[in-house]
Design a protein around this nucleic acid. Structure first.
Lengths: 348, 348
DNA sequence: ATGAAAGCGCTAACAA
DNA sequence: TTGTTAGCGCTTTCAT
């Protein structure tokens, strides 16, 4: 472990002043070839790398962006991180990641100390709208996921309302009449999804049966399944708060002895990468989570550059319906090809 | 955006010296009730929060750990991050995340600048063993995933050899005789898995047919599938380099018209969270990736505390076979219950 | 084009 | 117990 050379060591070795070295390192200025050569030599020689901490102290910039999310294991957030990271990398920024582990208490403390170490923050949270003011008071530019109704904070989100509508519409068109929603009440976005679904169902005069999962995870979907499927009003289609819940629901439903999707159509939101590999492959609404991450980071970096105008405000991405095998026409026979049981090759 | 108060402002407001404020903030000392009260008051009043950058400059500690991984979307790494984050949080450290996006060129630059901003690093990389010396020369404590053969760097890993053996053994016991391995040659760990598999197969005098996927991802598994299944020597079981590849393989195989697991048993490594929700549910070898992350962080923090002895060296976690539905007895009839087609309830 | 000097906000001896 | 003071490694006027 070597004790990194300082700017003074370089200055001494090159026979110039520290100011010159500093300017050289930052490319702030031009130099006579002689000086430049000596500088280059000395830096190379000593293996000098300027200390970003010291620099940050003066400039007040860290080239670090804080990213606070609820749970890195949720693919939705994983994608956000991926997108945000890519853009950050392109602009030579690094991510300070905070996984709050869905814990409300820790969250504030964590975000507070995060704020001090970064140039700006991207935050995904379940905190109530009131707390947004507190966030703003932290004194750093913030981009939020999901719109704040009361504060002019820049944010990116998707139209959960529309997403709900689209999915419900898809199901109704498929002939489903007893639609259930397996939600996650603690989420900020639960309500707007319900609203979208309701809007659609109302148009057809259909009822909506609402249930709640304990967490936005597959095990929670498994646990909730029997309550729905063995309960008094068994649905012919269920919309889950997210794909994780849907995946768990599907698994448990099959274990309960149901045929999917014939007995019940199931769909979720988020379009997580593995929904495609489930069986039946999961129908979902894609929120473009990676793009959300990219967009949030782009906005934030824009604000950092002082381009407030074009970046501030709420940016909304369009949700896209992704139809796979888990939703099927009500009462339809098994679709040939969907389970692909035909045409087995012989050999060996 | 307020311009945070400095330690001097507090000192002035409380009528004490900056040193006193500093000591108070760090709990380094006890105070007379009077002073303590005034301090508390002033700090509260001004909303003072000490500047971690300035502090770091002096102490040389940042309470930040750098975590460099290849791809946050790979659930294996996601779990590592989760585990590492949890331990870090417990000890009041924060993660500086670097997702190198599997890019070798960027990696060195990224890690180099990462090294300057953290107290220590946890690195997962495909870099050749030679580069380990370079890593060490960065001057920060490092914990590596996977053992280095030539350098005494502390690291955590799993016994890929054993894992391969276990899986092959499982398959052989199930009656499979034509086993194929769909690997990922660019990985550090590919070879040891092959070795383990071979060791087992050799004991039974069985051959191993080796193929290679282009990337450690599901699409790569899909692409590789037909080459294996429609090729000259169709296997009755295939072991994939990881679960992602296996998931893709399974999907494509079914689309090709094969019945799984009857026509071919498939298994992978990593035990990713969604293997359980695939169909057939994926048999895998659990490497305890979350625990790897925890362990790596624990070791690193130990070293940071100067407990070199007990933490240095190579720590190996045991791989565990997780048998699900994707591997089945050769020639067995469809297992009742595994697809759960019986006992459908009527209602509505 | 180069250098001298004044800090950034804080901690850590050392004094008192 | 409290205060004084000297920096940490760097950037940034302002001279030269």
């Amino acid at each position: 472990m070597k004790k990194g050379a300082t700017i003074r060591d370089v200055a001494a070795a090159a026979g110039v002043s520290v100011a010159t070295v500093s300017k050289y390192m930052n490319g702030t200025q031009r130099f006579t070839p002689v000086v430049e050569a000596r500088l280059k030599e000395a830096i190379e020689q000593l293996g000098y790398r300027s200390n970003p901490l010291a620099r940050s102290m003066i400039t007040g910039k860290t080239r670090t962006i804080g990213l606070a999310i609820l749970d890195i294991r949720n693919p939705h957030f994983t994608n956000i991180v991926k997108g945000a990271n890519r853009v950050a990398l392109q602009h030579d920024y690094t991510l300070l990641l905070v996984d709050t582990e869905e814990s409300q208490e820790r969250e504030k403390t964590l975000i507070e100390s995060l704020a001090q170490r970064v140039d700006g923050m991207i935050v995904s949270s379940r905190m109530p709208d009131d707390s947004v003011q507190w966030l703003l008071d932290l004194g750093k530019p913030v981009v939020l996921f999901g719109r704040s109704l009361r504060f002019p904070i820049s944010s990116v989100g998707t139209d959960g309302n529309l997403a709900g509508y689209i999915l419900a519409n898809h199901l109704v068109k498929l002939g489903h009449r007893h639609i259930a929603y397996l939600g996650f009440g603690r989420s900020r976005w639960n309500d707007e999804r319900i609203r979208g679904i309701r809007t659609c169902l109302d148009e057809y005069g259909l009822p909506l049966d609402i249930h709640d999962a304990q967490s936005p995870s597959a095990p929670a979907g498994e646990r909730a399944c029997s309550g729905l499927m063995l309960g008094p009003k068994r649905p012919d289609a269920v919309i889950c708060y997210n794909d994780l819940i849907a995946l768990g629901f599907i698994k448990e439903a099959r274990e309960l002895g149901f045929q999917l999707p014939q007995d019940v159509s199931v769909a979720g939101f988020d379009n997580v990468p593995y929904g495609e590999y489930a069986s039946p492959a999961l129908t979902s609404v894609d929120f473009q989570s990676e793009k959300m991450g990219e967009l949030a980071m782009t906005k934030l970096l824009g604000e950092l550059r002082g381009e407030a105008d074009e970046n501030t405000g709420y940016a909304m991405l369009d949700p896209h319906l992704v139809v796979r095998e888990s939703t099927i026409k009500r009462g339809a026979p098994v679709a040939a090809g969907s389970t692909a049981a035909k045409d087995v090759r012989q050999e060996s």
